[in-house]
Amino acid sequence: MSENLVIINGGDSEQFTFVQMLEATIRQGTNEIVLRNPKDNRSIKLKAKIEAETEIKPEFENLVKVWKKATHHYSFIRQKIVHPAYLRIIGMGEKVLPFILEELRERPSASWFPALEAISGNDAAQTAKSVDEAVQSWLSWGKRQSYLTV
């Protein structure tokens, strides 16, 4: 990857190539670096993303597996959202939002809306007229908030 990226760190910014930026990140040992590609303005938090992929994602996927097996056959959302695994997912907080949204995109379910509302404090689907519309509303919200890539 050879596009130039801008590192935003505490208000200062320097322009590096992607590879140089990575090296700079490790040497500096900073905790919060936002990478932004000026070409399309996409941005990610590098260190947070590494942590999410190696720690949060496996835990989330395991909880989803347990939760779905126990509740997939229920017809009332109240029955699904009281399961301990679901509550644990909510307890993981904002860091789990990208994974919930990816799960919602790949395997839609109305059961995810309470978790998304609880974690984000938003109700992106307040005008949706169907589950499909609510799914799209949340996915659009996720993209606007940069929790989901385009």
Binding site: F76, I77, A110, F113, A125, A128, S130, V131, E133, A134
Partner: peptide, 14 residues
């Protein structure tokens, strides 16, 4: 087969 039927204030539940 088009809607999720459940008493709720959520507009996407029928």
């Amino acid at each position: 087969t088009k809607n999720w039927w459940q008493p709720s204030d959520s507009p996407y539940l029928f």
